[in-house]
């Protein structure tokens, strides 16, 4: 059972300056599963996600307490280089954010600069785009600017860009909130496909989405983890009344 766990949070508190954004979070994320983080705006779900690859380091005046173990090692330990962590834990953002470069260079950017020793870049680019189910649409325009793609295509490009680093985990921060329903459906299909090879942790404010794609769901409220369970259980018969109220739309 334990070998199944890839990330382990142990009594994590997080502060923006004086105010506490996360309180005493203890939870485990399991390998090759899709875990969804849900809850009303400002509940701390995005903050938690950004803790996992140390993106919150970029914000002035933040502080972390407790430990987050990734493959048994605390990623907030003194000697850990956040850059190393981010190579293994990829991220896809709320708004598609391709670089103003060509499609090809968007994908090759990470592998090239991090010197992970790619023998055949063309193959890696093709592979990554195929995994993100974008290859057929862009294979003839690889040297065109990524800015010309549609929003949904851009987001899949960003997923491909993250996949090119061959991460163990993919963090997704409301990846479909800026997209139309058709693009959203495509991304959801893609997530279904990706979980065979990757661990996916996704923040979403769309409860149907969480129900459709995730294996496990965590419900956050005011910086607290209220309930963390199998998705099926959360959506049919949650243990906590509060969760049920939220899911059935009684507040939030």
């Amino acid at each position: 059972m334990d070998s199944d766990i890839i990330i382990k949070l142990n009594k994590v508190n997080f502060y923006y300056g004086q105010s506490r954004a996360l309180t005493d979070i203890t939870m485990n994320f399991r390998k090759n599963k899709v875990s969804a983080l849900i809850g009303p705006s400002g509940c701390g779900k995005s903050t938690l996600l950004r803790l996992l690859n140390r993106m919150n380091d970029l914000i002035d005046g933040t502080r972390v307490e407790g430990e987050i173990l990734f493959e048994e090692k605390n990623i907030y330990a003194q000697n850990v280089d956040p850059v190393e962590i981010r190579r293994k834990i990829g991220m896809v953002f709320q708004k598609p954010n391709p670089f103003p470069k060509t499609i090809y260079n968007n994908i090759s950017y990470g592998p090239k600069l991090t010197g992970i020793g790619v023998e055949d870049m063309d193959t890696l680019v093709e592979q990554s785009l195929k995994r993100a189910v974008l290859w057929d649409e862009v294979k003839d325009i690889l040297n065109k600017s990524a800015m010309n793609l549609s929003g949904g295509q851009q987001q899949r490009l960003c997923i491909a860009r993250a996949l090119a680093m061959k991460p163990d985990i993919l963090l997704m921060d409301e990846p479909t909130s800026a997209l139309d329903p058709i693009s959203t459906a495509k991304i959801e299909e893609l997530i279904e496909e990706l979980k065979k090879n990757y661990t996916i942790i996704i923040v979403t404010h769309n409860m149907q989405q969480a129900a459709r794609i995730s294996d496990e769901t965590a419900f956050f409220y005011l910086g607290n983890l209220v309930e963390y369970n199998k998705t099926e259980k959360i959506f049919t018969n949650p243990d906590v009344k509060h969760t049920e109220d939220y899911i059935t739309g009684r507040f939030g």
């Binding site: 981010r86 954010n97 670089f99 991090t114 960003c158």
Partner: peptide
């Protein structure tokens, strides 16, 4: 230069200086 460019680059495990040199400065 949008903050999202920096975040995207850093999230790939690209170092800060490389992010500045390759993404921020050219833009």
């Amino acid at each position: 230069v949008p903050q999202t460019f920096r975040e995207a680059s850093l999230s790939l495990g690209v170092s800060k200086w490389q992010t500045i040199y390759r993404i921020v400065l050219p833009n």
